[in-house]
Amino acid sequence: MNETQTQRYQIRIEDRESHLTRIIQLSPRGLRLLAGGAAAVLVLVTAGAVLSVYTLMHSYEGAAEKRDLRDVNRIQQEQILRVSKKASALADELDSLRRSEDSLRAIVGAPPAADAEVAPTSAAPTGGAPHALTTEEVDEALEMLETRIEERRSSLDLLARTMSRSFPGAAAYISAGAPQTMPAGWPTEGYISSPYGLRFQGTEFHQGVDIAADVGTPIVATADGVVRAAGWTASGYGNMVDIDHGGGIMTRYGHASAVAVAAGQEVRRGQIIAYVGSTGYSTGPHLHYEVRVGGQPVNPASYMSQ
């Protein structure tokens, strides 16, 4: 037996508490097997750690993708909601024009106006199970409504001119054709929760009236005019609409949950411009309504009673 065959390696293990010493003797082959086993365990532990990190990163990426998809879907739904509200406002204006035209036709003894024939669109399904509208479908319905309104307005203007020629004294009845630039009536349904003037024991001057109503209640323009501001404002009014009626007269509609018009847009009396909310400095759902003359707030009550 040679020296290589008799060579041994010792591993000394000392237990300090019991003062015992254990000696493990290994041959070169046993030492190689022990080292190989330790290396294999290290490889397995490393592989497990890498797999855990990969799985964790993959789950994070999946969660991020889901959040992105939810954000995209939320934005799309908000866009569809805004367009749908505008379509609803246009439908209300169409009904108003139809009623005005029927009133004029009744004065001259003409039959009621016939509805224009409009081909069905994908945004207005005629049967089957209802489905969520896409942006394209709502846009199609919006375009259809705009076309019908223009047709109705042209028919109304033609009837108004005919009345003016046939009945010289009938100009006062042509309300739809003449501008209605003086604020009149209530801008929304509800009750006055805070009037114009001093409040909070004289510590604050309220420049308008607060009309309490449910969130989402339509707000209408109280006179014809041009929208000067529409959307969020940091002044405390939240979502707000300002309408210039000419002659130094302006109306303001504050704390809306959403607006249905844009700056620069022409609006008519009775047209939906926003929806009641509680945005800005507000303690509950209501509309803050102001009438300003020459830039100064005046009591809206006299205009609302007309």
Rank of each mutant, 00 (worst) to 15 (best):
G62Q: 15
Q76G: 04
E101A: 01
L97D: 06
T126K: 05
L90E: 02
A178V: 09
A89N: 01
R98G: 09
L94E: 05
V108D: 13
R161L: 15
R99V: 13
E143S: 10
A176I: 11
S88E: 07
V72I: 11
G177E: 03
H58W: 10
D102N: 15
A132N: 06
S155D: 15
T162S: 09
A176M: 09
D92S: 10
K85M: 14
R70N: 04
D92L: 07
P125Y: 02
S100I: 01
E117P: 08
E136H: 12
M57C: 06
A176H: 06
Y60H: 04
H131E: 10
S155L: 10
V83Y: 02
E117G: 13
R70C: 09
A114G: 00
S122M: 15
R165P: 01
A64R: 04
E101M: 01
S164A: 08
S103C: 04
G128F: 12
L81W: 11
P111A: 08
Y60F: 04
I107Y: 11
M144D: 03
L156C: 00
T162P: 02
Q76V: 11
S154M: 10
D139E: 05
V108W: 04
A132C: 01
I174E: 02
D92K: 07
M144K: 07
I149S: 04
K85N: 13
N73S: 11
I107E: 12
D95F: 13
Q76K: 12
R99W: 11
A171W: 14
S84I: 05
E61D: 12
S84E: 13
R152N: 04
H131K: 07
G127Y: 02
L145Q: 08
D157I: 03
G109K: 00
L90G: 01
V108E: 03
P111L: 06
K86P: 03
A87W: 06
E140W: 03
L97Q: 07
D95C: 11
L69W: 04
S154E: 14
L145Y: 11
E101G: 02
E101T: 03
P112E: 08
A110W: 02
A91Y: 09
D157N: 11
Y60V: 00
T135P: 00
E143T: 13
P125H: 04
T162M: 11
R67D: 08
E65R: 14
P112H: 07
P125Q: 00
V72T: 15
L156E: 00
G128I: 14
A170W: 05
R148F: 02
E101R: 09
A89S: 13
A171P: 09
V118K: 01
G177R: 00
M163Q: 00
A132R: 09
A63P: 00
